[in-house]
Amino acid sequence: PEAADLRALSRHLYEAYLKYFPLTKAKARAILSGKTGDNAPFVIHDMKSLMEGEQFINCKQIPTQEHQPQTSALSVGHGGLMGAHLGSECNILDAVELRFFHSCQSRSAEAVREVTEFAKSIPGFINLDLNDQVTLLKYGVIEVLIIMMAPLMNKDGTLIAYGQIFMTREFLKSLRKPFCQMMEPKFEFSVKFNTLELDDSDMALFLAVIILSGDRPGLLNVKPIEQLQETVLHALELQLKLNHPDSLQLFAKLLQKMTDLRQIVTDHVHLIQLLKKTEVDMCLHPLLQEIMKDLY
């Protein structure tokens, strides 16, 4: 009976994952391996193709700041985390670059909403103290977004705009400092993470485990959070045994990734905080500001 309950929990979280996250790993890997026929993604590999990419895609406008340029926005995939846009007096190429970073922020804010809805679907989450729900999301959401970037990435680049665009790693490395430094650590992490070969049903459980971390600073009532996490951990362990019977120590390897993840988030937040200090007129999306303020 206990195993049956754990399997039911796994199914529930997988269904919530499919409901709230539009680009699954299965779909992303099909796109990346060219199995989607004529629907190959548009490739952005330089400034010219970045400008073409803006016209290539029909994307939704997500207004954020009052003085944002009203231009078409590239909706970035799960991983729009670069989080900065800069002020005026730019040439045309700079303006394109800036619009891209603005789009990253808009997509990140939307992704935070998706992760919040997923968190609310974890049994017991909405019964936790409301302050603790806020804390768990504040500290967990960037970790979740970075994990969700991994399926969109390979060693050569990343899918963005819900899989409609592939942006090369070399192009991201060619952006001016410090923007060029933002994605490279995520690529390094993702390439290693992808060797674990998790599927979407495994990912759903792993994301829930991350969200239910009882060691986040400032939690008021740790015990119920740890109890919820323990149940999801059992479900994850069972899931991995059944889904990856030949992959030795996969559960342990996956848990070790959580340590690497915290370092990546810390570095990312420090980079954003540095940007705020050094870049004139830089604005952060209010939701991202809330999350990153006093984070690490």
Partner: peptide, 21 residues
């Protein structure tokens, strides 16, 4: 804490559309 995280709090309390974000 929820006072300092009004948008996050709103997201937790009800579904907010991307435009509202």
């Amino acid at each position: 804490l929820k006072e300092k995280h009004k948008i996050l709090h709103r997201l937790l309390q009800n579904s907010t559309s991307p435009v509202e974000l």
